[in-house]
Amino acid sequence: MGTPISLDIADDLPAGQLDTLADETFAWLREVDARFSTYRPDSEVCRFDRGELLLSEASTDLRRVLARCADLWDATDGFFDAYATGGLDPSGYVKGWAAQVASDRLLAAGSANHCLNAGGDVRLRGRSSSGQPWRVGVRHPWDPSAVCLVLAGTDLAVATSGVYERGHHVRDPRRGTPARGLRSVTVVGPDLGLADAYATAALAMGVAGIGWLDRLPGHRHAVVTDAAHCLHSTDLPLAD
């Protein structure tokens, strides 16, 4: 998916079981990359976008993702748009969704304590190997060696969308231009796919995304503006 992915399993399980869980997790994520990558011309997403694959011929996963992207377009008043760049690119949902599915599978397989980090989209469950809640640093938008906030929790989905690595890659779908106003958006909620999409949508909205996030039920957020102001929900789960 063009990003580093790390997995920390903190359960007291036999080494062989830990290896199996890790292997199955990364096999799933490689499958997602092969199917949804916009950089691979033979991926299912690229073939569908070129019209070489009918919707009726698409995999269950692709049909499910396309349906969810359509729902998200409606829920965000069009600011989450898988076609914002002209071609089909559901990456703003797929990365978080894939990591959420992987975490759900780990939980079902007996891992109640793990942290899966897919390029800044993080799914936390249970506790770390120290017995304490997991801690997640939100990268400082101007200093890659620093964090601007540290979150903590035992069951959190944390997604961040920003412009500090890939530039202004998120586009305002209404104007057709790169989104401006927000340097980074972090959304915390129960589902990583939704948190990922909401962070992307808010970034596309610019400063108007702050008010939209304030009204978003069941989610908390932190934003850093282009003017270097850091704003966040009053009940954001900050580490002590």
Rank of each mutant, 00 (worst) to 15 (best):
R171S: 08
M1T: 11
R63Q: 14
F80G: 06
R183D: 08
V185C: 03
G2Y: 05
A67D: 14
A146W: 05
V187H: 05
L21E: 00
P173A: 00
W142P: 02
D81L: 01
L216M: 09
A228R: 14
E165A: 12
E44D: 12
G162C: 09
A99R: 00
T76C: 01
G218M: 10
L151M: 11
A222Y: 06
S6V: 11
V150P: 02
P178V: 09
G218I: 07
V207P: 14
I9Q: 03
A228G: 06
P173F: 00
S111W: 00
P4F: 11
R174A: 13
A118E: 04
T154L: 04
C69Q: 01
D77S: 12
D11G: 03
A195P: 02
L216I: 03
V32I: 15
L54E: 15
V122I: 15
C46M: 15
C69M: 08
G78E: 00
D121E: 12
R40I: 07
G87C: 07
A34Y: 08
R180I: 08
R180D: 06
S161H: 01
S56M: 09
P133N: 06
R68V: 12
Q132S: 13
V150Y: 11
T60V: 14
T225A: 04
D77A: 15
G162Q: 02
P190E: 14
T225I: 07
H169G: 10
D11T: 00
V101F: 05
A112H: 12
A208W: 08
Q132L: 14
E24R: 13
G218E: 13
T38G: 10
A157S: 11
G110Q: 01
L29T: 06
F26R: 07
A10V: 05
H114I: 00
H229Q: 13
P90R: 05
A179F: 03
A118T: 02
Y164V: 01
V163C: 09
T177L: 14
L116N: 00
V122R: 01
S37P: 08
G206N: 07
L156T: 06
V147E: 13
L55A: 15
G206I: 00
R166P: 10
V122N: 01
V45K: 01
V32Q: 09
D42W: 10
T186Q: 05
L231V: 14
S128E: 12
D89R: 07
D71P: 06
F36M: 12
G92F: 02
S233M: 04
S37A: 07
S128D: 14
Y93W: 11
P190R: 13
M205D: 02
D214N: 12
D104K: 10
D196Y: 06
S91M: 11
S37T: 04
G86S: 05
D240G: 15
D11E: 06
R175S: 15
A99P: 00
P144Q: 09
L66M: 13
R171N: 11
G110P: 05
Y39M: 10
W212I: 07
G211C: 06
V32R: 05
T20C: 11
G162T: 04
L62K: 01
L156V: 04
G193L: 02
L54T: 12
Y83I: 09
V188T: 03
D240M: 11
A197W: 01
Y39I: 09
A84W: 00
Q100T: 04
L13W: 03
L156K: 05
V187R: 02
G211N: 10
W73L: 12
